[in-house]
Amino acid sequence: MTEIPEHLLKRAQAARDKAASPSDASASEGGDRIPDALLDRTKASGAGAAVVAAAPAGGVPVGAGPGGHTQRLLTVVKSGSIQEAKAAPVDKVHTWPHLLAVEFVAGLALTAFLFVFSWVVNAPLLQAADFNNTPNPSKAPWYFLGLQELLTMFHPMIAGVTLPGMGLVALILAPYLDRNASNKPEDRKFMTSMMTMFLIFWAVLTIIGSFFRGPGFNFTFPWRDGIFFEL
């Protein structure tokens, strides 16, 4: 036997009371049930009645909701939800065609770009791996060159593990550390500048590691000694 929720019991009781009371006779009164005071207020405030509000004109009621529409309160849901609700509805557009068309074009453009680029530029394939022949310089993939650049400044444990680890943890914790609820750019100048500094820091390190490091990972100028970089 399942337990009947409290509010359902309450509602059932209310319905029983209503059925028993004689004042229910107003059921056939039609559109006249909306008090004049309420109608006046509705007109004055420009707001509408949710169930139905009507100006009874010759027995044919006209909706008095927003835009003259008849709007109805469907239900009041009692239990909690994980969905966020707001007081006013949000206008939306259909995914088809508005979003799908954009996605299709974007995907097509990217495919075309990749196709043409791959046609024109060949991926590097150097000589077969040779353990006895260390190329000079030896460079990591470009996205790790910032780390390799750090290696020239710090102890390997700091540059290779501690700093990137801290960066990753900081990224993961960012939403929990940032207590500012606003997403307006003008309200979050601090976080924006922090992120910009972080990005520029890595970009500069990666660019130096990619283009300004030559044999022996020594500093060079690409326009003087050439580029020591393979993608």
Binding site: S26, A27, S28, E29, G30, G31, R33, I34, P35, L38, R41, T42, S45, G46, A47, G48, A49, A50, V51, V52, A53, A54, G59, V60, P61, V62, G63, G65, P66, G67, H69, T70, Q71, R72, L73, A87, A88, P89, D91, V93, H94, H98
Partner: peptide
Amino acid sequence: NPPMPEWSTEYQLVEVDADYLGKAV
């Protein structure tokens, strides 16, 4: 897209009967 119907945030809620609704809509 169909236009968004107008909505309010200050509804005046009134209970009506089936008869009324039948005439209104």
